[in-house]
Design a protein around this nucleic acid. Structure first.
Lengths: 205, 205
DNA sequence: GGTCAGTTTAACCAATTAGTCAAACCATAG
DNA sequence: CTATGGTTTGACTAATTGGTTAAACTGACC
């Protein structure tokens, strides 16, 4: 726990950690306060209620994650490079924000109205206008196979995210040790890029 | 709530529903008992504690899900057909058991020791020996590209499962209406099969 | 009918927990 | 110094909730 910043910031940071690890219902305001090194009464002074604190925490997590992705896919490089950057970007995002991502899947399932509020506030132009148009352009130029850009994007995100999100389960079902699983994850970055390019590029070398 | 079966079964069914919707911490034993139409005291009579009931519930859910997958991929058809069956099988599994699958990602992250116990009890021969060997065979015969069978399987599961698990989030980030999202999911079954086959088949038509 | 094991429940208990509040603690301006 | 505003907290409360218990109920078997 950092002890530098002011009380409000420290509480929010602590809240993110506790909510991500324990979920909304499992989180205790006392634990958040303790982690921040501040009394529980102060927590209510700043955020009024657990629910309000939760909202602020979710918003902050989401803006952190989103910022991280958008930064990487604004390039104007060759198509292959764009795919590679995209895969690497999502991969590292999911590794870095694994607990937060899992947290989103579950908590947001229960608090869907919060998602509306949050997604409304983000800038999707990079993703939707930048990236999707680029996919569309390649398609129209006949360089890639005829598929919906959105399907391609979802495929990429899925192949990057799923093995990280489902690690505890996959590891056991596939009977892989921690090391073996890590090896698999390491080779996936390159593998997914190749897999995607083979699936969509039209010219057969 | 079915009222046919005996108390124990009804409690377990109710527990699965409540745990999947609310998570372990969010679930109330009273709600489970009410849903089963049985007193909370009886719940403790049969299962001793919330924790024990939770374990039984998780085990039952898992065996339901697993059974559903294994049944579909035991075919000895052509490779293309195997891929298609696999994709359709996982797709329908994720749609049918969506809340349960999300539940697994979150709760099992917190109770990893439970996963060990559960996965130990299942039969992985169909998946690992049957399917993986088939992939391996095709690879050795030079029909498909040189890639690890496990990577291929993970890619398929990921592309089937992720869009369903992440629906609430994806729907909003991609600014798709419910109908549009449904349309996307519907075309994915065919699309993923094509995508995979293009990525792995060696001969260029 | 009587008994006995298994089942069911209303009433209760102890522990936990989100939220409150009045008093104390600053810092800064007058 | 003192007054004032924002800040901080220990002590408290009301409500919830998992779990217990003793008593009642049920049906099978003698």
């Amino acid at each position: 726990m950092d002890t530098e910043h002011n009380a409000e910031e420290r509480l929010l940071t602590a809240a993110i950690e506790v909510f991500c690890n324990r979920g909304y219902d499992g989180a205790r305001t006392q634990e958040i306060a303790d982690l921040a090194g501040i009394s529980k009464a102060s927590l209510h002074y700043y955020f009024r209620s657990k629910e309000l604190l939760f909202r602020k925490a979710v918003q902050k997590v989401f803006s952190l994650i989103i910022g991280n992705v958008a930064r990487r896919i604004s390039e104007e490089s060759s198509f292959e490079v764009v795919i590679r950057q995209l895969v690497e970007g999502y991969f590292e995002m999911f590794i870095h924000f694994r607990t937060q991502a899992v947290f989103f899947f579950t908590e947001m399932m229960k608090h869907e109205e919060l998602l509306d509020e949050i997604v409304k506030g983000i800038d999707r132009s990079v993703l939707l206008n930048g990236l999707m148009l680029r996919f569309q352009k390649e398609r129209e130029e006949g360089k890639i196979i005829d598929m919906e850009p959105v399907d391609l994007l979802v495929n990429i995100i899925a192949m990057c995210g799923y093995p990280i999100l489902a690690e505890p389960l996959l590891k056991r079902v596939l009977t892989l040790s921690n090391d073996e699983y890590q090896t698999m994850l390491n080779r996936r970055k390159e593998m997914v890029v190749d897999f995607v390019l083979r699936a969509i590029l039209k010219e057969k070398e």
